[in-house]
Nucleic acid binder design. Sequence first.
DNA 1: TAGATTGTTAATCGATTAACAATC
DNA 2: TAGATTGTTAATCGATTAACAATC
Lengths: 232, 232
Amino acid sequence: MKGEKKVSNATVKRLPKYYRYLSDLHQVGISRVLSIDLGRQMEITPSQVRQDFFQFGCVGLQGYGYEVEPLMQEIGKILGLAQPNQMIIIGAGKLGRALANHPSFEKRGFKIIGMFDLNPHLIGKSVRGIEIQSMDALPEFAAGHAVDIAVITVPRMHAREAAEKVIRYGIKGIWNFASVEFEVPDDVAIEHIHLSESLMSLSYKLKEKRQALAEKLEEGYCWTYGLECGLR
Amino acid sequence: MKGEKKVSNATVKRLPKYYRYLSDLHQVGISRVLSIDLGRQMEITPSQVRQDFFQFGCVGLQGYGYEVEPLMQEIGKILGLAQPNQMIIIGAGKLGRALANHPSFEKRGFKIIGMFDLNPHLIGKSVRGIEIQSMDALPEFAAGHAVDIAVITVPRMHAREAAEKVIRYGIKGIWNFASVEFEVPDDVAIEHIHLSESLMSLSYKLKEKRQALAEKLEEGYCWTYGLECGLR
DNA sequence: TAGATTGTTAATCGATTAACAATC
DNA sequence: TAGATTGTTAATCGATTAACAATC
C-alpha cells in the first residue's frame, strides 16, 4: 500500500483555505456546513467542494452537509498538522521578530523553539521568552532538538548561506522570506513568500479595476450615473 | 476597442515570476534569453513560455530567442508597473516597519509615502525618513496625496476597521497582512498575504517528503544504500 | 415518508503540451 | 544559405461544472 496520494494538485492548493474557514466556523461554534455555503466563502462552486472532498473519501452526510470538526481533522491530517512542527527562525531582524510574535502559528501547532542571528547586538536578547542565539550555536542546537522547519528572514545576500547551513544540519523544511530562490536537495521541502510578486499581482488587479472603470465612463455610464443621482 | 484583456488567468499568475527572472537576467547584463532556459527557471515547458508570450503578441525573434529588456517592459506594462504606485502602511508594528525597510519595493516602483498607527508611543518616530502619523491624520493625508495602495499590518482585531477606513478615504488598493478576510467594494483591489496558509502548504510538502522517504526505505532502498556505501 | 444534500459519473471547459511551418 | 528557435495550430490532459441517483 503506497500511501494514498490521490488528492489532485488543484485540490491540495485549496486545502489550507478550507482548513482556515472550517477552523473559523469551529471557533464560533458552528458544527455543520453545506457545500454551497463553504463554496460561497471559498468562491468556488458547491460542486467543486464536493468533488474535492470526494477525493479523500467523503466525510459528509447526504441530506445533511458536513460535520465541521471531523472534516477539519481530516484535512489537518492530510496537511500534516496532526503532529506539531517545531520551528527556528534564522534572522532576528524586524521581520523575524514580527513572525516570532505572531500568535496564530502556535495555535496551528507551529511552535518556535529557537532564534538565531549574526548581529552581536541582538544575541542574548529575548523575544516572547525565546533567546536569540549566535549562528555558531546552530549546529549544536539542531543536533539536540527535533527542528522541522527553519524560517529564513535574513537579508537577501545572506539567504543562500543560511539555507545551506540549515540543510547541512539536517533540517528538512524551509520557509523562505528572502527574495531569492535556491535549489534544494530532493528531500528538503521549501516554501517561498514572495512579497514583491504579491505586490505585482495587486498592481495588476488595480490596473484592471481602473481600466474597467474608465471603460464604463467612456460608454456613457458617467452620464447615467449623473442621472441616477438626480443630476441632469 | 475594449482594451485587450486577452491574457489568460493562468498566464497572468505567472507574469510576476517572469518579471522577476527577467529582471534578474537584466541585472547581470544578459540581454537575450531562450524559451527553454526561461522555462527551466520557471519550472514550466518552453512550449508554455511561448504560448504565454504569444497571448500578448510575441516579442521574440524566430531563431534567436527573446530580448530581455523589451520583454520585461512589456510584462511590466501589463502588470501596471509602468507608472509608480504610492503606498501607505497602516500599522507601524514590527511587520509594518520591516516592510518599510524592505529595499526591493522601491526598485519596482512601489514607494512608501506614509505610515500610520494608533499607538501614541510610535507616533512621531520615523522609519527610513517616513514619520509615523496618528490614524486621525489619515483622512487629510489621503485627500492630499495620490495613495494607490494601503498596506494593512495591524493586528487581526483592528484589520477590518482599518480596511473600512482606507476604502472610505478613496484608496483603491489593499495589501492585507492581517489573517482576516473581508469583502470589499467592486472597485477595490485586494491582495492577501496568508502566512498560515503558506505554512500549512509547507507542512504538507514536508509530510509528503517524509512519506516518500519512508516508502523508499520500506522497499529496501536502505539496504541498497548500504551497499552503495560499501557496507555489507 | 418527504425533502434535502451529498456521492459519483459524465460533459464541458480551459490550460498544457506537442508539432511543425515560418522566419530570423 | 543552413541552423536554430519562435509563432501558431492541433492534440492531450486535467480541472471544473452539471446532473442526478443514492441516502440521510
